[in-house]
Amino acid sequence: MLALATALVSAMVTDGWQHARSAAVDVWRRSRPEGEAEAVGLQLTDTRTRVLAARECQDAEAERTVVTDWAALLQRVASRNPDLVNELGGLLLPESGAAGAGSEAPTVMKARATGRARVYQAGRDINLGEQ
């Protein structure tokens, strides 16, 4: 759950946040029709505000606390509704295919080209159409 919570909190500070938030609320709405989705939407918005403030103040501990809080919440939700967490994991952790995955080390690629050299890097498939 920590990987999923980390991905969720990381998405909060990206340009794609509104899309990620909408997708998360939609998943909640489909899986938990009791009206929880709106509350989760508000909680996500509040959490984003906290994360942005923590980043502005360079308060890594506050951000870690937010991740830990979401991991605990997602763990509780998973015990009641594993499909919800798996679907959310599929959205936020598409490479893992599961919410519990993500224990692998991140891929770090570094390259340096000098002169007329070219560097091509890809995290997955790459197709070059050069002549």
Rank of each mutant, 00 (worst) to 15 (best):
L74E: 00
D83N: 11
A71K: 07
L74F: 02
G102P: 04
A62Y: 05
Q75S: 14
A62W: 06
S96K: 09
G97S: 08
S79M: 10
A78P: 01
G89N: 09
G97C: 06
D59W: 02
A98I: 09
A99N: 06
E95D: 14
R76T: 15
V67I: 15
D59L: 03
R80F: 09
G102L: 10
L84G: 00
V67C: 10
T65Q: 15
S96G: 04
L73S: 11
A60C: 04
E95K: 10
G102C: 02
R64Q: 15
E63L: 15
L88G: 01
E95W: 06
Q75R: 13
Q75N: 04
D69Q: 06
L73H: 12
V66L: 05
L88M: 05
D83T: 06
S96V: 13
G100A: 09
A78K: 02
V67H: 05
D69M: 05
L92V: 05
L93D: 11
L91Y: 03
D83H: 12
V66G: 07
E63W: 03
D69W: 01
T68P: 00
A78W: 00
L92Q: 08
P82F: 02
A101V: 11
L74H: 00
G102Q: 05
S96W: 05
A99R: 02
A72L: 08
L92H: 07
R64L: 14
P94I: 14
A78C: 04
D69G: 03
L92A: 07
R80T: 13
E61K: 10
E95N: 08
A60H: 10
A62P: 04
A101H: 07
G102D: 10
T68C: 06
G102W: 07
V66I: 14
E87S: 12
V85A: 00
G89P: 08
R64D: 14
V77C: 09
A72H: 07
D69E: 14
G90L: 06
A71C: 08
L84T: 03
A98K: 04
D69V: 14
T68N: 10
V66Y: 03
L73Q: 03
L93C: 09
E61I: 14
R80Q: 15
L91S: 01
S79N: 11
A98C: 09
V85N: 02
L92D: 03
A78E: 05
G102H: 12
R76L: 13
L93Y: 06
T68F: 07
W70D: 01
G102T: 13
L74G: 01
